[in-house]
Amino acid sequence: MTKKVKFSIYRYNPEKDAKPYFQDYEVEVGDHDKKLLNALVKIKDDNDESLSFRRSCREGVCGSDAMNINGRNGLACLTDIADLKQPITLAPIPGLPVIRDLIVDMTQFFHQYHSIKPYVIDDRPMPEHERLQSPEERKELDGVIECILCACCSTACPSFWWNPDKFLGPAALLHAYRFLADSRDQATNERLDNLNDPYRLFRCHTIMNCVDVCPKHLNPTRAISRIKETMLARNV
């Protein structure tokens, strides 16, 4: 059995459109097309091959298909069509420059991510075998290591909208905490120095949109609080 689903989708092709506009679509989806991404692929196949969006793994692992769904950031591949009010309004994730339709330029987002040095820093001599971590030490990373960098959180954050070039945003800060919390990492001091800035960390005003939208149900706000606690512990 098929059913019709109505969409209103943000369209913008900078090469020919003077400004963005919303285009309506109606697509027939089958019983097996449960997720929003299924319907989008169907639109691209059946209705309009010019509609552009990113997708890859289609199961919430790659984080490519982050978009603004009925006013809320989320992953199209994890969102059930049945849960959405129609017409389903789709727009690019806010706050980043649009390249085309639902595709945004993530350069700024990844620049902030790279600035926290997202790798374990350990200059000690290489051990004969791997650097071991106890189960308790590994447990510290639960709830932070699962981030897929889809940018749903950072682009839902007003502080990131106002200062995307200076404020790291929840995703990068979650990763900053992930490396601070890693028992193998030796650069705690440098990492905290790097974050001790009125903008990079402290533009977070605990709005918690990041927690609200995270498709992996992570809590960047808590990670940010822990960074601040670590700073406090270092200073008192």
Binding site: S115, N194, N196, P198, F202, K228, L232, N235
Partner: peptide, 11 residues
């Protein structure tokens, strides 16, 4: 870009 002011914690 990404220059730290070295303060922020105190405030």
């Amino acid at each position: 870009k990404g220059l730290s002011a070295g303060h922020g914690f105190n405030a």
